[in-house]
Amino acid sequence: MPDEPAENVSGGTDGGGVEARFATGSPDTRAEAVVDALGGLYWQKAYGGREAFPCLVRTILSQNTSDTASQPAFDALLERYDGGEDPRSSGNRPEADDSRTQSGDGGDLAATLAAADRETLADTIASAGLYNQKSRVIVEAAEEIVADFGGAAAFHDFVREGDPSEVRDRLLDIHGVGPKTADCVLLFAGGRDGVFPVDTHVHRIARRMGLAPPDADHEGVREALEASVPSEKCGFGHTATIQFGREYCTARKPACLDGPEACPLYELCDRVGVDANEKVVVDPAKW
């Protein structure tokens, strides 16, 4: 079974939780059967243990770009503002008691970024794209976290220990933080079960496979998946679906165009928006 790539938002084997095994005998829903199949193809993991504020920053950097492009920006940000310490190296276990988000000189990363020069920060994270916008979002989020929580440590405690719905609502109140970013923080930092973040891969694949209505928006897909996938399987369901989207179920040329044998999930898929005979692929909402 392959390792989860380090370029994923979860951090792969360096910080993305721990391997786990979940019951896969008789799935109650087709969505669960899909997640079980993905778990066999890729990984089954229990997530958690990431520091909340770096996780938030890392996910903001991933917006509208690939993980392979945003990871160098995150590494560069840590090197400049956090003494080069990668928070992926602390607390791989979902139950880990992390040492809190501090910079190499003993300072608070949120406070450091709240006081950062935006042009310098933008230059630092340039590889992530949309760097002017993202630098503004990061600085403003840091300012808000320092003002409302006192710093990254208390924010981390809130994410880990607060009521999940309240934590999600509070994250969504931060300018520039959308549902996917909030859910990634809940999953990878909070270690919360029942959270299935929806990015472009998950949105496309869930509708293409018939696991969500073809015209569902990102929130509609999230609600459909969280209602039909056991809570403990939602985390790796998210990351494994992304990997499946990269390797097999791409936007323009899904593997099924080459025949049933080309896709390991062919029998579980409705292929909404895919006409293999005509080699036509459209958004499921337009099918």
Rank of each mutant, 00 (worst) to 15 (best):
V274T: 13
G25A: 13
P164C: 06
G151L: 13
G48A: 11
H156A: 09
V198W: 06
D123C: 03
A33C: 07
L171P: 12
G237H: 11
S135T: 03
T24R: 14
Q71K: 13
V177T: 03
A153G: 10
P284K: 01
T181K: 06
A122G: 14
D28N: 12
P197T: 03
E166C: 05
L268I: 10
L225C: 07
L56N: 10
L187Q: 04
I145R: 01
L121S: 03
L113S: 07
C263F: 10
T181W: 07
G83R: 05
M209P: 03
D98Q: 14
V159Q: 05
D258W: 13
D163P: 03
A37Q: 08
D108M: 08
A154T: 14
A212V: 03
A110W: 00
N8H: 08
G178R: 11
C234L: 05
E232A: 14
A115C: 04
D270E: 15
G235I: 04
H175C: 06
D173Y: 03
T124F: 04
A276W: 08
D199F: 02
A37L: 04
G107H: 05
T59D: 05
P230A: 09
T124D: 10
Q102R: 15
E144K: 13
H175T: 14
N8C: 09
V221G: 06
L78P: 01
E95R: 11
L38N: 12
F74C: 05
P264Y: 11
I145D: 02
S62F: 08
L77T: 02
F22C: 08
F74Q: 05
L172T: 06
E223F: 02
V159W: 06
L211W: 09
Q133V: 14
S228Q: 13
V9G: 08
G16Y: 00
G107M: 00
Y131K: 09
E278A: 15
I138H: 02
I174E: 00
A147Q: 15
Y47C: 02
L56S: 08
V272Y: 00
D148G: 11
A31L: 08
